[in-house]
Simulated assay, not measured.
Amino acid sequence: MTVLVRPLRPDVPADAEGFARVRRLALPYILFTPDSVRHTVAHTHPDARFRPLVAEEDGEITGTAQVHLIPDSPEPGLGALNVYVRPDRTRRGAGRLLVRAAEEYLAEVGATKLFAWALDEPANQAFAERRGYRRGRTAHFLRLDVAHGTLPPLPEVPPGVELRTAADFADDPRPLFELDAETVLDEPGDVDYEFTDYDAWLAQSWHHPLLDRELTTAACVEGRPVAFTVAYTDGDGRYSTAMTGTARAHRGRGLAKLTKAHSLHRARAAGVTEAFTGNDTGNAPMIAVNQWLGYQVCATEVRYVRELG
């Protein structure tokens, strides 16, 4: 039973399906489908030098790694590797081999500081620390039982505010890009991001196969979006919030809560059975919104950091 690590072949159906299957088993709180795997490979910005890897044992994909530079950060030399192994195939060498291959590749393309997410469990902590990674920020995954839970009543839409969907911006999504670019600047985390490339955003985000434009909801003032929640769905009853944010000039009015509540109510009517979201543990305002909506913490992950050289 030899474990081999190789690049993902996105055009081979078994590879894309195997990658998505491993991620769903190891990290069920983030939506992955074969189509989303292929999309990410095809449309990640070239400057990211994206290289997805798989670990294969006896012809079966048992582990995955997303490996890339972080070109959206103003700080040069940042790299990321997110490694996940099927829960029933751990301790067989897949994780170790994937990390080694990922680190070697990132060093080759100029990374000097590496970031890796891992679930906050003792085995993962020991694995990361043995390889020289230090513990960084933490974040929660939260789950909402949409089928059997109770959503709070819809908040009233304030005067002067109009709710619209992403589908309403199909002819010109640039206002949503501009809002996304503003709100990401204030998203808590250990890496700063800046969105400046509209064409890259269109390819990566606007045309993402999981983006549900009917459920993605924006609060608009004088026709321009000032708060939004971005909804992903996988066609299997699962919903995930990809981003929720409010423009700085409109914060404190409950608009994030408004957009997310309306999106979830429509999601339930559309047949969604469970919803996931994530929060940096220092993001108290969004944690409060999600608790009000009925989300419960289902897992915690840690951002591990390692300096190269």
Rank of each mutant, 00 (worst) to 15 (best):
L293T: 06
T273G: 08
A227G: 12
A284L: 14
L31S: 06
H250E: 05
G63C: 00
Y198H: 07
L202N: 10
E104R: 13
W292K: 06
A247Q: 07
D234S: 08
R38S: 04
F141T: 03
E182D: 07
R49L: 13
D280W: 03
L106R: 08
Y29C: 08
R131A: 01
R89G: 01
R306A: 05
D35P: 04
W206P: 09
E103R: 07
R49S: 01
A299Y: 07
A227Q: 06
D145I: 00
P10Y: 05
G77R: 15
A123Y: 13
G237K: 01
A299I: 07
T183A: 13
V41F: 04
N82T: 06
K113M: 10
T33C: 08
D190M: 00
L4H: 14
T196I: 06
T150K: 07
R9Y: 02
N283M: 10
S205N: 08
P188G: 11
L78C: 06
R137I: 06
T183P: 04
G95D: 04
F228P: 02
F141R: 02
R251L: 11
H68V: 00
E121Y: 10
H207Q: 05
D236R: 13
G254F: 05
A55D: 04
H250G: 04
R268M: 05
G77Q: 15
H207T: 07
P28D: 01
L151C: 03
E17T: 09
E274W: 02
R24C: 01
N279D: 15
C298K: 06
A123T: 15
A20C: 07
A42F: 08
I61F: 11
P34V: 00
K257C: 09
A20K: 05
G309T: 13
V54F: 10
T40Y: 02
A102R: 04
R96Y: 00
K113P: 04
G282C: 14
H68P: 01
L211W: 01
G93C: 07
C298D: 13
R306K: 15
T62E: 09
V161L: 15
V5Q: 03
A270I: 12
R38Y: 09
G95N: 09
T2A: 14
T44N: 08
F276Q: 03
I61E: 14
Q204S: 05
